[in-house]
Design a binder for these strands. Sequence first.
DNA 1: CCTCCGCCTTAACCCAGGTCAAGCCCAGGT
DNA 2: ACCTGGGCTTGACCTGGGTTAAGGCGGAGG
Lengths: 195, 195
Amino acid sequence: MRFPKLFERLATLAPIPPEEWAKAEAVAKEQSLAKRELFLRPGDAADRFAVVLQGVFRGVRVSPRGGESIKAFRAEGELIGAYAEMLQRLPSMTAIEALEPSHVLVFQTRDFQQLEQGHVCWERLARRVAEQHFILKERREQEFLELSAEERLVKFWEEHPHLKGRIPQRDVAAYLGITEVALSRIMSRRRRRAE
Amino acid sequence: MRFPKLFERLATLAPIPPEEWAKAEAVAKEQSLAKRELFLRPGDAADRFAVVLQGVFRGVRVSPRGGESIKAFRAEGELIGAYAEMLQRLPSMTAIEALEPSHVLVFQTRDFQQLEQGHVCWERLARRVAEQHFILKERREQEFLELSAEERLVKFWEEHPHLKGRIPQRDVAAYLGITEVALSRIMSRRRRRAE
DNA sequence: CCTCCGCCTTAACCCAGGTCAAGCCCAGGT
DNA sequence: ACCTGGGCTTGACCTGGGTTAAGGCGGAGG
């Protein structure tokens, strides 16, 4: 077993027999990415996803009208991929970019579908993954509906302490739905209030 | 078969053998709700969900700090329930309220879990449902990140034309994340620009 | 018929955050 | 040591939307 920690983590979502896990490891390929390198670029077919073994990624949506907003950050143990587009069999509208030199374990969706045919555990896992993703997005919706930018910022750092120092401010701003400038102002306001 | 149209709709998400559908119909119970009646109130156990046969519902989140925001509207053929709380086995933080005299088909989550034990089609259906819900929430996230309130309004009516005339403005505002007053202003501005 | 109530609009004022434009600081490259 | 550029901050000014409060209006009940 090449990735025992990953296996353990997935097993908490759905029980996976070791022999099924062996099949998964057999089809997965490791990939290394340099800082700023893209795992997926907009327009690509959304036919692969990966688990982050090492590093941090940002999922960037480049809107038709130029601006870029950030859908999520993903670090060790988390999944990267254009999930919504994959489900809808659309080309990716998302860029997924390494913010550090990173290392991931890549699966082709075809291969994963093969696994699903072979054993129900994969169907169950896929369900859990969909449910967890849903919960995250709903939480975020909630935050946009009832919190100010400042409150969202505080919550962001509470929920992602492991990202501290690994992602540029401008990206945090783009994740919160505000500009770099507004974020800087909010931070200085808090600093002022703090002392 | 009591609900052939519903069966057909679900079958587009995942193939369901008719004998499994019969079991589902056997455990489901019909319920009627008056206008303003709650299908679920905050604090209730999230142990049931329903399909809307007739009517419209709003999912309201009452925040600790008093304000209420609207997570979704649901009309004929759609599911109502505190989905995220159900998945996390938390008490509901959401009120689900009929905006018209309505009629729904109720399932206990226990009963549904029974069905899952009996046949994989239900697991697959649950997965599809989770995925569809995810896609909706991600779309909404996108809208908060890159659209103004006015743009969100336009999109809302494009995507929910069947709700026209069935929901009060104030609820549309709460869904868009703005106040009744702001919504009114936006609408008059557009009217002015239009002529 | 009138009144009350729920729903919507309008107006006046305020504040958070956007935009544009300077600047600053620091790390890297020469 | 010098430039360069990327990332952050700051200031001046503008604007969308919040807040409060005052009507308008149509429908249900007296």
